[in-house]
Design a protein around this nucleic acid. Structure first.
Lengths: 144, 144
DNA sequence: TAGTTATATTTGTCATGTTAACTAATAAAA
DNA sequence: TTTTATTAGTTAACATGACAAATATAACTA
């Protein structure tokens, strides 16, 4: 016996995200790259925007400040990110990605693209556009 | 500057699941119910099927055996689940949900339904059906 | 039957997500 | 300017997820 919830959007969203993250992690690992998907997301933001504060990274990644602290600690230890003191506000850090950080970011990007291709199998571009549009609607319904 | 990945299916799936889980957790907490969404998922399975082993629960919930051990520990401590020794295989447990477990499960179900309604705002039934269908396709692409 | 292999669960370790409490620094108000 | 409130970041505690190793039992095979 199985619940009607098993085919609900909630269940499916959760399942999809779980499998997707598993796939991404394992792709990164199989290439012997020492970074997690979450750490990569941070590297990505810092690659796009230099001198973000931790708070700004938290906002961009929809994560908690406390998490960012810990993850930046790890990224700093690995030499992928540097904390610079902010001359205007001694409470905050300006973060920058290192050369090594950029290298790692660039190594992972094609793996992300591969996975995007993999999940799109048997799904037309039109369908995927519609899927993404509805994802955005759901996100907005949850953010409000 | 933002990456093309920000509107990719991967990013959106991840974001949707994150917000959805946050919403669910906070709904449960705001009703002062002492259970996590993941624990509720287990209660749900045991409510549908009695005498599942931990391995079976793990398979149904797509989780790790080790995680199930720990979550069942917590559910047992709270008196929501009982471990019965399996007469045919002394390695495994047969799990059953308690009366209190069923009560908790039943309290949370309407909250899950509320959230399903909330995320469906401005999305037609037809659109949502298509969304779910594509979710299933993506899941299959990831499971293969 | 003895020895090997497979299985179900447990335990430990590490990363992340959530929450609360805390520190230091800035901003606002009296 | 002194007090008060807010803000950025840190730390600690707990739950989950992934992974590896360990234990006990079951199943298989020579």
């Amino acid at each position: 016996m199985s619940s009607f919830l098993d085919q609900s959007a909630g269940y499916l969203i959760n399942m999809t995200a779980l499998l997707l993250k598993r796939e991404f992690s394992s792709a990164i690992k199989s290439h012997n790259i020492d970074v997690t998907p979450e750490q990569w997301a941070i590297l990505n933001r810092l690659n796009e925007n230099s001198d973000l504060t931790q708070k700004e990274v938290a906002k961009l990644t929809f994560k908690d400040n406390a998490n960012i602290t810990r993850m930046v600690d790890k990224l700093e230890k690995k030499g992928l990110v540097i904390r610079h003191s902010d001359p205007n506000d001694r409470r905050s850090w300006n973060l920058s990605i290192t050369k090594k950080g950029i290298e790692i970011r660039d190594l992972v990007e094609p793996l992300a693209v591969d996975i995007l291709n993999k999940i799109s199998k048997n799904i037309s571009k039109k369908e995927m556009d519609s899927y993404n549009k509805i994802s955005n609607k759901i996100i907005n319904n949850l953010i409000e």
